[in-house]
Nucleic acid binder design. Structure first.
Length: 414
RNA sequence: GUGGCCGUAGCUCAGUUGGUUAGAGCGCCAGGUUGUGGCCCUGGAGGUCGGGGGUUCAAGUCCCCUCGGUCACCCCA
């Protein structure tokens, strides 16, 4: 057996799967950049406080943080999500709002791997800071929706909820606590839920499920501004034709959310891990991280899960090889070296075999590569300063002057 | 963190009640075709049966431990 393996919960993505991965990132980048979002590159690790400040009552921070002490004695955490990082960057650099950013990269959560769940997974996401205009909420949700649509996914449910703000939520939480005080909850929540009773609503255990069936709904307790905001978000989505399902129990895993929250569930995924994306508004987060009061909203999508959903729906396949030319050389390799170099410099993709293999072997490689054309250099061609061009789809061949090969290939590829 | 299932060639898997040199398909390499792929035929390479310990005359096959994979709970991308 091999001595080393990728660490638990991580995977290697090799060709051709990686090509599909690249295509997904490109699709995402296209969608959000057309909407004015610019790429932000933030560190994959932060002072652990960046995340603790933001989610002390959440599983993501409490149980799943991938943290350690570095050689300088600093407490570091590999980012479990990126919103806190991006907001930290915003607070640090104070770009002129509105600040619209997108990101792509690995995220880390120390948990047991499972279908669609890894210790290192990859997210694509956007964050927009500087306005609490409901139109921005609509834009954000619509962008997430557009990415799914762009992939060809049709079995995705958009779950939508509002968590209110610090005006209406406290009163609701009191009402909820009063209700829960008289209820029989699951083992974990029976112990306590003071920090965030909302989590009980999100609990999947039977005891909590049953106990909260008749619990008061936050949506019924929204203050006037929050209710108005939510109504505008709904109207905006209706106007764009983006279908959604109101999910009064949708709480989401991080404490910083206010008002709009949403999740994209891939119905084609059989496993419990069917959330391919999610996000929401976080109007108090910038302040919590020591910055000026700045409203914001964003979402993240999981690359691995999106691709799993695509598999389940049979859409967005790995792209076929785009190689233009395979150079076959039976004279020792020098002509192949020159030819491939020349073709590549001219913008034509080209590859070749090594190790002086037989012509038959080289053609097999050419076939497997999916190349459109083969250029053959044998003793005859070398002597006559020509190259034999073979179309690998049809099989017809022709002889071309060595000097004009690049131009000739260019014409054949058109 | 808790639990179920599984761990034999690069991949997918066979391996009878423990018994001689561990097999197949696919893939890979070579040849059949002394200048040519996709089909076909032939041959070849490749495994200390995850690792360690134990039971036994004998273990891929039984027991224990460990590592890994996988699925589930919780939660989330």
């Amino acid at each position: 057996m091999t001595e080393f393996r990728a660490p638990v919960g991580t995977r290697d993505v090799l060709p051709p799967e990686s090509a599909r991965w690249e295509r997904l990132v490109a699709l995402f980048a296209g969608v959000v950049e057309r909407a004015g979002y610019g790429l932000v590159l933030s560190p994959m690790f932060e002072d652990v406080g960046v995340f603790e400040r933001v989610g002390e009552g959440t599983d993501v921070v409490r149980k799943e943080m991938y943290d350690f002490e570095d050689k300088g004695g600093r407490r570091i955490a590999l980012r479990p999500e990126s919103t806190a990082s991006v907001v930290r960057a915003y607070v640090q650099h104070r770009p002129t709002p509105p600040f619209k950013a997108w990101y792509a990269g690995p995220h880390f959560r120390y948990e047991r791997p499972q279908a669609g769940r890894f210790r290192q997974h990859h997210q694509l996401g956007v964050e927009a800071l500087g306005t609490d205009d409901a139109d921005l909420d609509v834009e954000i949700v619509a962008l997430a929706w557009s990415v799914c649509a762009g992939l060809g996914l049709t079995q995705v449910t958009l779950l939508l909820n509002s968590l209110g703000d610090d005006v209406c939520r406290p009163a609701y939480l009191d009402a909820l606590r009063a209700f829960l005080g008289a209820a029989t909850l699951c083992d974990e929540h029976a112990g306590g839920y003071e920090k965030n009773p909302l989590r009980v609503l999100d609990c999947k255990r039977d005891a909590c499920r049953a106990a909260t069936a008749g619990a008061p709904r936050l949506l019924d307790h929204l203050c006037e501004p929050c209710a108005d905001h939510f109504a505008r978000v709904r109207a905006g989505l209706d106007g764009l034709g983006v279908a959604y399902t109101i999910a009064p129990r949708l709480v989401r895993g991080l404490d910083y959310y206010t008002r709009t929250t949403f999740e994209l569930a891939a119905d084609a995924l059989g496993s419990a891990q069917n959330a391919v994306g999610g996000g929401g508004r976080y109007d108090k987060l910038a302040e919590a991280l020591g910055g000026p009061a700045t409203p914001g909203i964003g979402f993240g999508m999981g690359v691995e899960r999106l691709l799993l959903a695509c598999d389940a729906e049979g859409v967005f396949p790995a792209p076929a090889s785009a190689l233009d030319v395979w150079v076959v050389d039976t004279t020792g390799g020098a002509p192949a070296l020159a030819l491939t170099h020349e073709l590549r410099a001219a913008g034509i993709s080209a590859d070749r075999s090594f190790d002086g293999r037989s012509m038959k072997s080289q053609f097999k490689s050419a076939d497997r590569s999916g190349a459109r054309l083969a250029l053959v250099v044998g003793d005859n061609e070398l002597a006559a300063s020509t190259v034999t061009l073979r179309d690998l789809r049809g099989g017809e061949q022709e002889t071309v002057d060595r000097a004009g090969v690049v131009e000739h290939v260019r014409k054949r590829l058109r």
